[in-house]
Design a protein around this nucleic acid. Structure first.
Lengths: 357, 357
DNA sequence: TTGTATGCGTTATCAA
DNA sequence: TTGATAACGCATACAA
């Protein structure tokens, strides 16, 4: 038998379509007795309202869009998987669907917005980065389309502009600060920082935390010598680590896992006696886990959930549909989440490396 | 001004809605003169047909669905990014959109299919794995919903069942075969295989290629000693490599990059003199690239594009809309793609490791 | 509290 | 070749 519709179900139950529609969209308007009878029938018939018909009427697609960037080449791309999964899950739980799309450039991204808005009627977008005068965010704001950004709108100079749009980000400085404290607790004092930070606001932010913690610990005078700039690659990490080691660093905080991987290898090579290379990475990628490298873990799942919360809140008086009596507090429009350090012991593979096999 | 609709545009042009619709969907039915006039007007007005209205009429959503598996823990998850991006891009190029969803289990996945089919009217699904009597594929087939699977339907015993559904897969055996040949050409003869293959059809497939190449090269008698089973982790690779080395292996083909990473570290540790650990991984993940490890690269982009081709072909007489005169050859419903070995030289970090810094 | 009428934007059928 | 009419499935204002 064919899929039931509002009309077919109404005929069957000898009520009007309107009543069934009310049971679904405004249950309080229907007498409890009939409501329950109809609810049971809906259940039994497996009736589900058609999103297309609904959208035609309400001008709501219950659909968010997100641009998928061209395959993030780095090791750190692994973070995207988790983010995407959490995003999809949260959207789904809120009754929304997630549509992916590709774009060649930021301006092409705007063309895609336009197309997806007109054709598919998307209700909002997820952006995975932005700058203070990002053409995309400006376009979306002018058009009044809801969107949320993962990442603060850093400007080129490394400053943070007060943006009027919603964003969620991870507090990188807090992460490196915590990493330094962990290393201090382990007895290290000459703790280096390795990262790309000039002209790279994210790297600069992470460096700031290291700086703060070093100052607080009274090692501020060592800071100039122990801060090394490096390309965010494995070889970059290796050569940076060599430089830091030559300056007496016994531990290194890195602004990425790629760097940490290179640094750890290099330290192990330079000091075969040391069982544990005191290196901390950033992003807590599977690679770090696989190699037993400590790393700063970002709560991307929480970030994703919050972004959906912001979006659904903006789209409805209340996401739940059922008007909660004390209207739920609106989600923070701009939220900075704290990461945490995952401490790991190196693999046996490394531990046995120092002693003859 | 509001977004133009068929009606508003028709009024403006003093033609019927139908004519405009024909210009879009059956241009040959419209007199060239009016067609061009209308096309220009469409362009100028920026008119775009509403997908919802269209779907209501045609029962087509132009939308495919794909389940996002819970964050692939391994290093190898990186392959998904590329696959997803290629999939989205190909779908987009074919005029389709891609909707993501999550599920807790295979049976929940079926519930999601049902929901997405009823509610959103998805036109087809992408699956990323299947077994011979997969409940999901059976359900989809019974319902007549188009779908394509990435991965052959291996059965538990490692056999390949003749499936009636479409799939695309990478020929793992061909990949390892090629890896062995590369190592042979480099002068190796005692080439080991490291992987998880009993009860793991994918691993068994990859082992098969190694076996074939070793036999062909006349090293068949060494095979029993040189095949080592290991858990697909970095430590697994390290201990497996140690065992293989003790049996005289000078090179190792691994069934994953995780294993290769562990194996390479171990070999480097065991033989400090050897600048190049002769290890080949599988999947060509960013980690392999970052570390300068050779690896078998899967053409996942091509696989993704083909799956979209299969799906769109099944849904339309012809994907292009414009009926091509010689009806394009239907895409292979079951396609095995050949991977290729990416040969890399280890990083400086490793090369300098053997000589004093 | 329940039912009736109308329209959301498109395509399909048919008549002109 | 073009135009009028109906229908896709639903929600909303309004009448009962």
């Amino acid at each position: 038998m064919a899929r039931p519709t509002l009309a077919s179900l109404a005929r069957e139950l000898a009520v009007s379509r309107q009543t069934i529609s009310n049971v679904l969209n405004a249950p309080h308007k229907v007498k409890p007795a009939t409501r329950e009878r109809i609810q049971a029938a809906i259940e039994a018939a497996g009736y589900r309202p058609s999103a297309a018909a609904r959208q035609l009427r309400t001008q709501r697609s219950m659909n968010f869009g997100m641009r998928l960037l061209p395959a993030t080449d780095g090791i750190n791309g692994a973070v995207l998987d988790r983010f995407l999964h959490a995003l999809t899950e949260a959207a789904q739980a809120a009754g929304y669907r997630l549509t992916l799309f590709c774009a060649d450039s930021d301006s092409d991204e705007i063309r895609q917005y336009e197309e997806l808005l007109d054709v598919a009627g998307l209700d909002g977008f997820i952006l995975t980065s932005s700058t203070p005068d990002d053409v995309r965010t400006r376009w979306l704001q002018e058009r009044g389309t809801p969107f949320a950004v993962f990442g603060r709108p850093w400007d080129a100079a490394g400053g943070l502009t007060a943006a009027s749009h919603s964003w969620v980000d991870i507090d990188g400085a807090a992460g490196t600060e915590q990493a330094v404290r962990m290393l201090l607790a382990q007895g290290h004092s000459r703790i280096g920082f390795l990262g790309s930070y000039t002209g790279n606001p994210v790297g600069a932010d992470r460096r700031r935390g290291w700086l703060r913690a070093m100052d607080a610990a009274g090692y501020g005078r060592d800071v100039p010598a122990l801060s090394v700039e490096a390309e965010e690659t494995v070889p970059g990490g290796a050569s940076g680590a060599a430089l830091l080691a030559s300056r007496g660093a016994t531990a290194i905080v890195c602004s990425s896992d790629s760097l940490a991987l290179g640094a750890a290898e290099k330290l192990r090579e330079l000091r075969p006696g040391t069982a544990r290379p005191a290196v901390v990475g950033f992003d807590n990628t599977p690679v770090a886990a696989a190699l037993g490298l400590s790393s700063v873990a970002q709560p991307v799942e929480e970030a994703a959930r919050h972004m959906i919360r912001v979006l659904t809140h903006e789209l409805a008086g209340d996401g739940t549909g059922a008007a909660s009596n004390p209207p739920a507090a609106p989600p923070e429009r701009q939220l900075l989440l704290a990461p945490h350090v995952v401490e790991r012991v190196p693999l046996p593979l490394a531990a046995t490396g120092s002693s003859p096999a």
